[in-house]
C-alpha cells in the first residue's frame, strides 16, 4: 500500500475544505472497498479524509412522507430499520443479499453506491483496463466476459456495477443529496448518478471532485409486493450474475430494475409499462439493444426467466 496522510473531520465543510487543500485526497467512511483497492495499489490516495463521524448516521422521515437515509448509515442498520422493512422491503432484501454480515456492519450507504466494479481485469494490475488506467485498453473485451455487461457498455469498458442496494434504490426512485466545497447542495436522481462508460470509463459518477454525498432520499412508499431475486454462483456471499428487483401492484403494474447487466442498476421506463404483459415483454424492453459475448449471452434468457419467477411469486 502507498503511504498517505490521514485526518478525521467533524463537519461536511471541513471535509470538502480538506479535499480542496490536499492533492490526491479521498474521502473514507467504511473503507471496505477503498482499503481493499489500496492494498492492491489500484487506489493510491495521498491523503485520506475520514468522514465516518459527520453525524450522517440517521434515517429520518421527510416532509413528503419518504425517508432521508444519512450517507454514513451502515448497510446492516439500513436493512434492519423498521420503516425500511415495512415500506421499502425491496431495499432491505437487496441489502441482505449483498456481501457478508461483517461487511454490512461496516459498509455505508454512500460507500455502497460508490463501490468500484469487481471486473477481474480491473483488479489485475498486470492487465490493461481503461477504468483503472485511462487509455490502456480493455482486457475484458475478448477475454473471460461471463460476468460482464450486456447493456450500456462501450468499446472501452464492459464492467458492471456490483451493488445490490443500488438496484433497489433505482427501482424506488432514490435521489442522492450532496454538498460541494462552496457549501452548495444538490439532489441527483440515482438514474442520473452513474455515467455511461463511453470513452471515459474511469469517470464513473456525475459527482464533481470533492463533492460529498450527505444522504440518499426515498420518495413516499409505493406499496405493492417487494421482491429482490439475485442469481449467483454461490447461495450466499457472492456478487450477482444478474439480479431482478421489482415492486408489483395487485393489478400487475409495477416497476423493475436489474443488477449485474450494466454499468449502473438498469431500469427502463418502457419496461415498467410492459410489466402487466409479462416477463417476455418487459425483458425485451429492458434489454433492447443488448450486446453479448458468447460467454455472457446466457444473461438474456436468465433475466427473462428470473423476472418470470418474480412475477409469479408476486401473484402469490
Amino acid at each position: 500500500m502507498k503511504s498517505f496522510t490521514y485526518e478525521r473531520v467533524d463537519t461536511p465543510a471541513a471535509a470538502t475544505a480538506a479535499f480542496a487543500r490536499n492533492a490526491g485526497a479521498r474521502f473514507i467512511a467504511g473503507g471496505t472497498n477503498l482499503l481493499d483497492l489500496m492494498k492492491l495499489e489500484i487506489e493510491t490516495p495521498a491523503h485520506l479524509i475520514d468522514v465516518s463521524r459527520l453525524g450522517f448516521d440517521r434515517i429520518e422521515a421527510t416532509g413528503d412522507g419518504g425517508l432521508r437515509i444519512g450517507a454514513m448509515v451502515r448497510n446492516t442498520d439500513l436493512a434492519s430499520d423498521a420503516r425500511v422493512r415495512r415500506d421499502y422491503g425491496l431495499l432491505s432484501r437487496a441489502l441482505v443479499a449483498g456481501a457478508s454480515g461483517q461487511l454490512r456492519n461496516k459498509a455505508t450507504t454512500a460507500g455502497n453506491l460508490l463501490q468500484r466494479t469487481r471486473c477481474p481485469y480491473f483488479y489485475d494490475t498486470n492487465q490493461p483496463c481503461n477504468k483503472r488506467k485511462a487509455g490502456s485498453g480493455c482486457a475484458a473485451i475478448g477475454g473471460f466476459s461471463r460476468l460482464h455487461a450486456v447493456v450500456g457498455a462501450s468499446e472501452a469498458c464492459i464492467a458492471t456495477h456490483p451493488s445490490d442496494m443500488a438496484v433497489a434504490m433505482q427501482a424506488l426512485d432514490a435521489a442522492v443529496e450532496t454538498v460541494d466545497a462552496a457549501g452548495k447542495t444538490r439532489s441527483i436522481a440515482l438514474a442520473d448518478f452513474y455515467r455511461a462508460p463511453g470513452t471515459t470509463p474511469h469517470l464513473e459518477t456525475t459527482l464533481a471532485p470533492g463533492e460529498l454525498i450527505t444522504a440518499v432520499t426515498l420518495p413516499k412508499p409505493v406499496g405493492g409486493i417487494h421482491i429482490y431475486h439475485k442469481v449467483r454462483d454461490r447461495a450466499s456471499y457472492a456478487f450477482a450474475l444478474i439480479s431482478v428487483g421489482a415492486v408489483v401492484q395487485p393489478d400487475g403494474s409495477g416497476r423493475v430494475a436489474l443488477g449485474g447487466v450494466g454499468y449502473k442498476p438498469w431500469r427502463v421506463k418502457a419496461a415498467d409499462a410492459e410489466l402487466p404483459r409479462g416477463a417476455k415483454a418487459a425483458t425485451a424492453a429492458l434489454l433492447a439493444g443488448a450486446k453479448t459475448s458468447h460467454e455472457n449471452a446466457y444473461k438474456l434468457p436468465l433475466v427473462e426467466r428470473t423476472l418470470a419467477g418474480v412475477l409469479m411469486q408476486a401473484k402469490g
Binding site: 490521514y6 478525521r8 473503507g31 471496505t32 482499503l35 446492516t76 461483517q102 461487511l103 456492519n105 461496516k106
Partner: peptide, 13 residues
Amino acid sequence: GRRINSCLSLAVQ
C-alpha cells in the same frame, strides 16, 4: 458490539 473484518479497517479509524 458489531463483528467486522479487521483486515479491511484502518486502525486510526
